[in-house]
Amino acid sequence: MSFGEPEGYDENARPRPLGMRAGARTAAVAVCLVLGLGLIGGAVTGSWLVGDSAAAGEKDSFTAAEALWHSVPVDQLFPPTVQGRGAGPGGADRTWTRIAVAPDSGCEDAFDPLLKKALAPVGCRRLLRATYTDATQSHVTTVGLLFTKADATGMAALDTRFTKERLGDRADLMPRTYPAKGTAAADFGSGQRASWAISVLTDAPVVVYAVSGWADGRAVDEPQSATAAMQSGATTPVAQAGLGHEAQGLADRVERGLRKAVGSPATEGTGKTS
């Protein structure tokens, strides 16, 4: 005994074999499954490609920054005049004028022993420094760019250590000044250091720092980090003179210029740092 294929009805109430409908549904499901897997696979592949592209871009920028010390003009890294809109106490504007540029050098005698030890893990490729004075020539500030030999992992490790151990706030880890004869910074020595700021970059092999003091050569008994001197309600002579703002403001703007240089082609011409 055999049975005929069971029938169903379509939208017009016409009989049709159920097997045909099941087969059509099965085929449709299979098509959707294939299309779905294709879309998912494409999305995953796309995300991998985007991720690889982003990682490659970051690596290229990091690598490009290594050579800035000799491929970018000194006037671009340390402009003759730096505008600090809102950089002073209470949001006051600041203007800094460059009065001296140090020859690019190594780091043999560039830092006090403890700071030199703290920076040792990333090495020293080159050190660039310049000294500025404010518009009234009352304050002087040395800003430095330490180009290291470290990779991104090494810079991230140093940044983590500086952050966790608050090394940037320790007075025994202050950067050294760059005094220049015949300028307002002629008497700007180690004893005249009043405030400082240190920034370890993780997207470039560079440590940016600045150290400020009075231009009249007065000694400072209790220097104060820029972070502490800029705190609301700080009443120390260093804080009231705005020397924390001088160090932090100038360091920030030199850092911005450095980041801009990473994204722009090197400029040929005179006045290079090499």
Results as ranks from 00 to 15, higher is better:
186 A>G: 11
186 A>D: 14
189 G>M: 08
190 S>N: 13
190 S>V: 12
190 S>L: 10
191 G>P: 04
191 G>M: 07
191 G>Y: 09
193 R>Q: 13
194 A>L: 06
195 S>F: 08
195 S>P: 07
199 S>Q: 15
199 S>D: 15
199 S>G: 14
201 L>W: 08
202 T>L: 12
202 T>C: 12
205 P>W: 01
206 V>T: 09
208 V>N: 11
208 V>Y: 11
208 V>W: 13
210 A>C: 08
214 W>I: 02
216 D>M: 05
217 G>D: 14
218 R>H: 14
218 R>T: 14
218 R>W: 12
219 A>E: 15
219 A>N: 13
219 A>Q: 15
220 V>S: 11
220 V>E: 14
221 D>P: 08
223 P>S: 10
223 P>E: 12
224 Q>Y: 04
225 S>I: 08
226 A>Y: 13
227 T>I: 10
229 A>K: 01
230 M>W: 07
231 Q>E: 15
231 Q>T: 07
232 S>D: 14
233 G>C: 05
233 G>S: 01
234 A>V: 00
236 T>V: 06
238 V>T: 00
238 V>K: 00
239 A>D: 02
240 Q>D: 04
240 Q>C: 00
242 G>T: 03
243 L>Q: 08
243 L>G: 08
245 H>C: 09
247 A>F: 11
247 A>G: 09
248 Q>D: 15
250 L>R: 02
250 L>Y: 06
251 A>K: 08
253 R>M: 00
254 V>N: 07
254 V>T: 06
255 E>W: 04
256 R>P: 00
256 R>K: 12
256 R>S: 14
